[in-house]
């Protein structure tokens, strides 16, 4: 769990690409790997949102970012409680590492932007990012999850993140 916390703090930013590279995984992820991927994905979005709250001057964008922080932190809290209960130690893996690398690249790009250009890039990326995470949850992570409670939590997470994807699209529409 310590490694995970350190990773969470180290994560900064988001990603531009819409694929998580999960399709390339030859073997199905295990529950500890799934937990690590989900937690990593959550933290990436929180870090991105914290940056947006600081940088954006647009109220709709700031509100959206605060919604992301609130919900993703709630999901993480549930996830950590479940992992503790199940005594599952999240396990780092290639997908988590790919997520972090892409997030770092995106963050580096966003750090160069300000004002309306930043708002648009951030929100567009939120649409793409949630879409990618949702696709991964639906096609890979949820089917692969062995533990019923983990599967349940991922399913609830999917529902929440689908809402975020819609919300991001709505904000993106307002920015145009």
């Amino acid at each position: 769990m310590n490694t995970l916390k350190r990773l969470g703090i180290g994560l900064a930013g988001l990603m531009l690409t819409t694929t998580l590279g999960l399709a390339a995984e030859a073997t199905k992820p295990t529950d500890p790997e799934i937990a690590h991927i989900a937690y990593t994905a959550d933290n990436i979005d929180i870090q991105a949102a914290e940056h947006a709250v600081k940088v954006s001057k647009n109220k709709a964008v700031q509100d959206f970012a605060r919604d992301m922080i609130r919900d993703h932190e709630a999901v993480n809290k549930q996830a950590l409680a479940l992992l503790a209960k199940l005594k599952v130690e999240p396990k780092d893996n290639a997908t988590s590492q790919a997520l972090v690398n892409q997030a770092d690249a995106t963050q580096a790009h966003l750090a160069t932007l300000k004002g309306a250009a930043f708002d648009k890039a951030y929100v567009d990326n939120e649409v793409a990012y949630h879409h990618a995470v949702n696709t991964a949850l639906e096609t890979t992570l949820i089917p692969a999850a062995q533990n019923a409670e983990l599967k349940d939590l991922l399913t609830t997470g999917l529902q929440i993140f689908k809402g975020h994807e819609d919300h991001a699209r709505m904000v993106a529409g307002e920015l145009k």
Partner: peptide, 15 residues
């Protein structure tokens, strides 16, 4: 007051 009052969730405007 009588009337029809639509409402939503501020955090999740789709609700």
């Amino acid at each position: 007051k009588a009337g029809t009052f639509p409402y939503f969730c501020r955090f999740h405007p789709m609700m």
